[in-house]
Amino acid sequence: MMVELAVGDAYGACFEYADPSFVAEHNTLERYVQHPTHPDIAPGAYTDDTQMTLALAELLITGEPWTPRVLADKFVEVFHRDPRAGYAGRFHAFLRETRDGAAFLERMRPDSDKSGAAMRAAPIGLLPDVAAVLEHAAVQARVTHDTPLGISAAQAAALAVHYCHHELGPFAETQNWVAGVLGAQWAKPWHGKVGSKGWMSVRAALTALTTGRSLSEILRTCVAYTGDVDTVATIALAAASRSAQVVQDLPDALVNDLEDGEFGRAYLVRLDDALLATVRP
């Protein structure tokens, strides 16, 4: 799951808010391309979506208390050990100036309903029951996105992974199942450009899952929306990668060219193994 969602993030980052004509021309899955206006993000590099997901995955593996202070400490840790572009400008500056969880919580204004809490929620979906997924997703969301839509978007993203991982029904019914837990609004199909709100990215990802039969098809669909497509692809591929009903066919070029530094592809593979071993019922 971690490699697949990182590929979705890195590939989507090539196209985030890019001109639709650029997306239409280059969304071929043949390779990572340089974003036309973001020279600081190299082709194949993942962004904040994956880095913050690492924080939650590592905490689930270690079994540390799932508290705001521990979560905030971890968010600061993963950023400072591997500073990178991709974060929103103000949050990037906030992290650069923040050295521990206490300072994070003291200075953070968690009143956002954007996608930060949803984009990182995938590992929570591996937990064994719905109640645990909802609670863990809500606790981590409140650290940065303590709004009804910020919390519910994180819960929806995690629930999609839960449904697929635990094989609770037909893959094409993922969106409807999530809606059955959280409300009918999550079953509405998404069309067009994806904005910055968390519920937008999650609904777009869920919609891509309803028609996709392979990881490649789902990834292309996510990016074709245009807008905040790295987040959409991260959420969708995390869920789809856990379904035995989905063809696991990401192109070798995207997997092999995913960044492979200290916290890159090989690290993600090891983390995935540890994460699945930790949460296995």
Rank of each mutant, 00 (worst) to 15 (best):
D9T: 00
D9G: 04
A10D: 11
G12K: 00
E16T: 05
P20L: 03
V23H: 08
N27G: 12
T28G: 01
E30Q: 12
R31K: 14
V33S: 08
I41N: 13
T47G: 04
D48R: 02
D48K: 05
T50G: 09
A55E: 00
L56R: 00
I61G: 09
I61F: 09
T62K: 15
T62R: 12
W66G: 04
R69H: 13
V70L: 02
V70W: 00
D73P: 06
D73S: 06
V76Q: 02
E77K: 08
R81E: 09
P83A: 06
P83T: 10
A85F: 15
G86E: 07
G86T: 06
F91W: 06
A93P: 07
G101N: 04
A102N: 13
A102S: 11
A102I: 08
L105Y: 05
R107I: 04
R107W: 06
R109E: 07
R109D: 12
P110N: 08
A122F: 00
P123L: 01
V133D: 04
L134M: 00
E135Y: 01
H136R: 07
V139A: 01
Q140H: 05
V161Y: 02
H165V: 09
Q175L: 13
Q175R: 14
A179I: 08
G183E: 13
G192T: 11
G198K: 13
R203N: 07
T207E: 05
T211N: 13
I218E: 02
T221I: 11
D230Y: 04
D230N: 05
T231M: 07
A240Y: 01
Q245V: 02
L258E: 10
D260H: 06
E262N: 13
E262Y: 07
D272N: 14
L276F: 06
L276N: 14
